[in-house]
Amino acid sequence: MKPSFPSTGSERFETPAETQAWGEQLGQALEPGDVVILDGPLGAGKTTLTQGIARGMQVKGRVTSPTFVIAREHRSLIGGPELVHVDAYRLLDSGVDPSGALDSLDLDTDLLDAVVIAEWGGGLVEQIADEYLFISLDRTTAFEADPESEARIVSWERRAGVSTQ
């Protein structure tokens, strides 16, 4: 990740559009080999954030949840890294050894040349990287204060991985 993007922080976004705009800034800072783990309950905005990241990376294709296909690859429109968007929950649930789960997807993209965004990636994806960006999306806090709120609190930090590659 480019050093211009803060390695830790927390922001409150009132709308999905604000979440996407922040994701776009993050996408512009990501580099080949970067791994991002998105954590949060259903509906927290993981795919919404990934849509913004994809816009910042200028990749091809509509970004939707990878739940039913496990992983989607998005090619760069500008010669940058590919975006590999993974539903790691499905990988963990597949019975495949976690250390080989991403390799078992038979992706066309070499993960070292791509940016990997993994929804529900904790416990799996950090094994493919020496370091990764962990992003937590919290909608519960805002919803409990105001059930009409679409706000989410996004917190992030760089963490050391346990790469076995």
Rank of each mutant, 00 (worst) to 15 (best):
S4R: 05
P6A: 13
E14K: 04
P16I: 00
P16V: 03
A21E: 11
A21K: 02
E24W: 00
Q25I: 08
L26C: 11
A29I: 10
D34R: 00
I37G: 13
G40E: 09
L42M: 15
G43E: 11
G43P: 08
A44L: 02
T48D: 10
T48Y: 00
L49M: 08
G52M: 09
A54N: 02
P66R: 00
F68R: 12
S76R: 04
G80D: 13
H85L: 03
A88Q: 08
L91R: 13
S94A: 15
P98F: 09
S99H: 09
L105K: 02
L112T: 10
L112M: 08
V115L: 04
V116N: 06
E119L: 00
W120M: 00
G121Q: 01
G123K: 01
G123Q: 02
V125C: 05
V125L: 05
E126R: 01
E126P: 03
I128Y: 15
D130R: 05
E131N: 13
Y132V: 11
L133W: 04
F134Q: 11
F134E: 15
I135P: 11
D138V: 01
S149F: 14
E150G: 05
E150W: 05
A151Q: 11
R152D: 06
S155I: 02
R159I: 10
G161P: 12
Q165M: 14
